[in-house]
């Protein structure tokens, strides 16, 4: 692999995304992406006694499911990159206790899954043949840790975020027939001083725009090279802001850009 421009890495032997899968909660199951999820849950507890235990169960079942779908034995997986929102990433570390694969815990908040794919790709160019990447989040455990008790009678402003309850996992393979990860552009932290905990889209949009534009500059590509440009967690306000920022820097992403959060619910 070699470095392109300021931040981008180009792979000489691009890894293949062999398999992927997801399990989500009941609210996500009612959204427009419902048919793309492998499994949906009836409630947020899934038989467990606490939100945190439920979240651990979700990531455990998701990773087991993806490994089974791929046909590869877990012993042939060289390492796993996984993370979540909770303190000490307990959801991933407890959930993957029995997986018996070398474990790299990562924390990137809303960027955790892409971060694990980036690190997993780099691993395939060095020591790994197969890498498992996984992440999870749970609305109730996130609210409990970061915001307010669920039963508190407070009003949420229109811009407030709704954390997804669910887990996604993917297996990367050194050899395969695609889809390939050809380039990765790790992004910088960009803090424009948004302190409103109820407007995370606005807090995150500048970093997204900065990473995207750096990617275009490093690779020499323009937005319409891509069939789709997708962000994970900006929401409809963050999405609008991202389009505006890109436009102010001369990049028109409006026609092929979409955001997962604004598509989820």
């Amino acid at each position: 692999m070699k470095k392109l421009g300021k931040q981008t890495i180009k792979f000489d032997n691009p890894p293949t995304i062999l398999e992927c899968g997801s399990i989500v909660g009941p609210k996500e199951a009612q959204g427009p992406l419902a048919k793309y999820f492998d499994q949906t849950l009836e409630d947020e507890f899934w038989g467990e006694k606490s939100w945190e235990k439920a979240e651990s169960k979700i990531i455990k079942e998701t990773t087991n499911m993806v490994i089974a779908k791929s046909g590869i034995s877990s012993q042939d997986i060289d390492c796993v990159f996984a993370g979540d929102l909770l303190n000490q990433c307990i959801s991933s570390s407890f959930g993957l206790r029995e997986i018996n694969i070398p474990f790299f815990g990562v924390f990137g908040a809303c960027s955790t899954f892409v971060e694990s794919l980036c690190l997993g790709s780099i691993a395939t160019e060095s020591f790994a043949n197969h890498v498992l990447c996984a992440t999870s989040s749970h609305f109730c455990s996130a609210e409990k840790q970061f915001r307010f008790p669920l039963e508190l009678g407070n009003q949420r402003p229109p811009s407030s975020q709704w954390t997804v309850t669910g887990s996604g996992a993917a297996i990367l393979s050194k050899d395969g027939n695609g889809p390939y990860i050809t380039h990765i552009t790790p992004g910088k932290i960009v803090d424009m001083g948004i302190k409103d905990a109820n407007n995370m889209g606005a807090a995150m949009a500048p970093a997204f725009a900065d990473t995207l534009i750096t990617h275009f500059t490093d690779t020499g590509r323009s937005p319409n090279y891509y069939d789709a440009i997708i962000s994970g967690d900006l929401g409809y306000i963050g999405k609008d802001i991202a389009i505006d920022i890109a436009k102010s820097k001369g990049y028109n992403i409006k026609s092929n850009y979409n955001d997962c959060r604004s598509s989820y619910f």
Binding site: P158, M192, D240, D244, I245, S248
Partner: peptide, 27 residues
């Protein structure tokens, strides 16, 4: 118009972009 010119311009831009709660109904 560059919303990212400074932290202040960005915060003003975000305030304009963010939808208002229905204050009359809430009151």
């Amino acid at each position: 118009m560059n919303p990212l010119e400074s932290k202040k311009t960005y915060q003003d831009y975000v305030d304009k972009k963010s939808p208002n709660s229905k204050i009359l109904k809430n009151c």
